[in-house]
Design a protein around this nucleic acid. Structure first.
Lengths: 206, 206
DNA sequence: CTTGACAGCTAATTTGAATTAGCCTATAAT
DNA sequence: ATTATAGGCTAATTCAAATTAGCTGTCAAG
């Protein structure tokens, strides 16, 4: 009875691995355990399946945004002038964000699919940019802004700090999308990055 | 007489915009000014055209690497203990690299094509990673290593510095691939990034 | 001048993938 | 019990795109 949903999952998996154009409806059916024509009892075309994935995604958007923003540590709430944000907490947050992005099946597949379709039309490029660039940057910018205001970090442009904090994470993430076997290496680099970042900006060092 | 070459150019352009699977040989022919069947006088299949692009690319590799590495400023040679690498030089180098990657027609198209085909097989993912991750990081790592040794920058892990310097550039580049209209904004951020990076690591500030 | 090979064309041909038609079964509501 | 609907299947159908066949004109080498 959840065939409709299972089709979406199977299709997302395939689209994220091979790209929309290289996936045949037969494969989707096979992955679900039905024949190709039966798909049409649930969706009126291949394109329709793709659209449904996008729609579903837009629904999950809030959930995603939440997860993205406050992953694990609730930095944004308790970050008054008092509570110290230790280096370890920053590391935990960075690694947590990275691991979530890399291992959450849905998030990961969706990102890969969007990567492959990003130049297809304006809607998709906008979506990609919002999800993986603007939104994270804007959230972290706000966070660093607070940390600076709270006197925990040196007074520097928060947007730039966000870029410097997030871009390495992003790059390592896309690296691991291509080469999962390099995750360990990436994690090590990421942690080093965050500690060095913290060292460079932390008040106590200046 | 250079039809063979013109086919490659047209195909690369199309592949980089729509992805291999969504380009029809008819379009390639049209772009060149001949009919589809005539393409087969030059290449034995569509796949063969794609392979030829890859081959050509591998040839140009040295050229690319050079351009990538010493773009404009010849930092790597004159960076003895004496010659100061001013912040402005670093900015010039970063912006130069960025602009080259973004505006050189061949480089740009090739990157976009690889972006769209990166999960297709291992060869392509390796190529992407080498070109846009490992190679730049390794070069810049060497550079920062020298700058640290020369006492121009604080003694920190050069690999991490390279990551921190290059990843924002990379992320802004992929952003502009999707949204050319945001180049100005990206350039501004990039320059801020580099100055702030320099501020954070420069010896004189510590 | 004539021959052969190069590079183009039009008109098939092949192939393969999406979609439609039409049939069958189970099950749930009337 | 009957019937309608949901969801599956096999067997067409359609359609588009890659590739092949086979013809033609040009031009350089002999």
């Amino acid at each position: 009875m959840n065939t409709k949903k299972r089709i979406l999952d199977a299709a997302l998996k395939l689209f994220s691995e091979k790209g929309y154009g290289n996936v045949y409806v037969g494969e989707i059916g096979e992955a679900v355990g039905i024949k190709a024509p039966s798909l049409y009892k649930h969706y009126k075309s291949k394109q329709d399946i793709f659209n449904a994935i996008l729609d579903e995604m837009k629904n999950n958007y809030d959930k995603q945004a939440m997860a993205l923003n406050m992953n694990g540590s609730d930095v944004n709430i308790d970050v008054g002038i008092f509570s110290a944000v230790s280096e370890d907490e920053l590391v935990k947050m960075g690694i947590g964000l990275f691991s979530y992005f890399l291992h959450d099946e849905y998030v990961c597949r969706f990102r890969k699919m969007l990567t492959l379709e990003q130049f297809h039309d304006s809607e998709l490029s906008q979506l990609y940019t919002k999800q993986y660039v603007d939104q994270p940057l804007s959230y972290q910018s706000a966070m660093f802004s607070m940390l600076c205001a709270g006197g925990l970090l040196r007074q520097e442009d928060a947007e730039v700090m966000a870029l410097q904090f997030y871009a390495p994470l992003y790059m390592l993430l896309t690296l691991c999308d291509r080469h999962p076997e390099r995750e360990e290496e990436a994690l090590k680099l990421l942690e080093q990055h965050i500690r060095q970042f913290n060292g460079a900006y932390s008040r106590s060092l200046s």
